[in-house]
């Protein structure tokens, strides 16, 4: 599932501008290591651009996990039945655990957890846009567990082949746990789709509302800049957004259609000749509007996080032992 961007040695010159401040000898060693398929560990030398991009990627992923727990957390008290309540509670706990794992991996690059949380709360850091939409009914929760987690798994399995050791380790554990999220989501989704006419109508309504955010999930088509090519060469970016969207459609559209449900895009079809999915372009202006803070729930999501940080502060401080100081964790 590697990206399709290939750079020949002749083309390498284009990176000169981005790398002009790096020590050429160390850079060559770093690149050799990646070419050999070895991982980069926190105390290794790495180019500034690599450090910055990997940090940004892991940090956004961590933020997406804690914010992502909110739409589902809302539904724990109202989940239909004890078994679904237990499953949802376990899933929400997992998501918070994933955030912890990812913040730990990001910390190894030299940014503290406080700095990351502050940037999230100040609206400076991004998280996945999909969590700025409301879960209005139980069908939305079933859909999130199935189709949002499916997207997350494609993203995480792809990134788990990347080059940064701590991120790869965190993702292995995360992917293992996510397998349950997807299965319980699919189970809840199928229960509604094969249920009463009212239940079917509920899941169809959820699909109609969520299809656009799902099409936004992997981001807009990449502009294959010099920057992108370099990050692909360094195994930071492992696939283009469109490649991941194709894998997603290929795996999950048939699982929706087999239940006799429809998707609100008349152009959606798999071209039998190319094997590629065709679809209408989702509204990318809306995507950018939401990512810049003006989605249906951006304000509520951050207000809830702020409230949690502020109200948890006294207990964190009461437990603080001043004699033990923070050092960057090793791995």
């Amino acid at each position: 599932m590697y990206g399709t961007i290939h750079i020949s040695e002749e083309e390498y010159g284009q990176f000169a501008e981005l790398l002009k401040n790096e020590d050429p000898e160390k850079l060559a060693e770093f690149e050799d290591r990646i070419q050999r398929g070895e991982k980069i560990e926190p105390d290794d030398w790495m180019p500034q651009l690599y450090r910055r991009q990997v940090l940004r990627m892991i940090e956004q992923h961590a933020h997406s996990e804690i914010i992502g727990a909110l739409p589902e957390g809302t539904w724990i008290t109202r989940a239909p039945g004890f078994r679904r309540k237990m499953a949802l509670m376990a899933k929400v706990q997992d998501e918070i655990g994933h955030a912890q794992l990812l913040y730990s991996a990001a910390e190894t690059l030299g940014k503290t957890r406080e700095e990351m949380i502050n940037d999230l709360l100040a609206g400076k850091s991004k998280y996945s846009n999909v969590f700025n939409y409301p879960a209005k009914t139980w069908a939305d929760v079933a859909l999130i567990g199935f189709l949002v987690d499916a997207g997350a798994i494609i993203n995480q399995v792809t990134n788990a082949k990347g080059s940064y050791g701590p991120y790869v380790r965190a993702l292995e554990r995360i992917c293992y746990e996510e397998a349950f999220h997807l299965k319980q989501g699919h189970d809840a989704f199928v229960a509604l789709a094969t249920g009463t006419p009212a239940q079917r109508a509920m899941i169809q309504d959820a699909l109609n509302r969520w299809w656009q955010p799902l099409m936004h999930f992997f981001g807009p088509p990449d502009n294959i800049s010099t920057h992108t090519k370099l990050l692909t060469r360094w195994k930071v970016k492992m696939a283009t957004n469109d490649e991941m969207r194709q894998w997603y459609l290929d795996q999950y559209v048939p699982k929706i259609w087999e239940l006799g449900l429809t998707l609100p895009d008349p152009a959606l079809r798999k071209d039998p000749e190319t094997g590629k999915w065709e679809y209408s372009d989702p509204d990318w202006d809306e995507f950018f509007r939401v990512i810049n803070g003006d989605g249906p729930l951006n304000k509520e999501r951050l207000a809830v996080r702020r409230w949690a940080e502020e109200h948890g502060r006294w207990i964190r401080q009461a437990l603080q032992k001043p004699e033990r100081s923070y050092v960057t964790p090793f791995a």
């Binding site: 406080e114 100040a122 304000k299 502020e310 502060r313 923070y326 050092v327 964790p329």
Partner: peptide, 18 residues
């Protein structure tokens, strides 16, 4: 409430254990 109040200070989330 959406606006940040007081930022977290260094070490507020405690040191780490392996």
């Amino acid at each position: 409430h959406w606006q940040p109040q007081r930022p977290l200070t260094a070490g507020e989330q405690w040191p780490t254990y392996e």
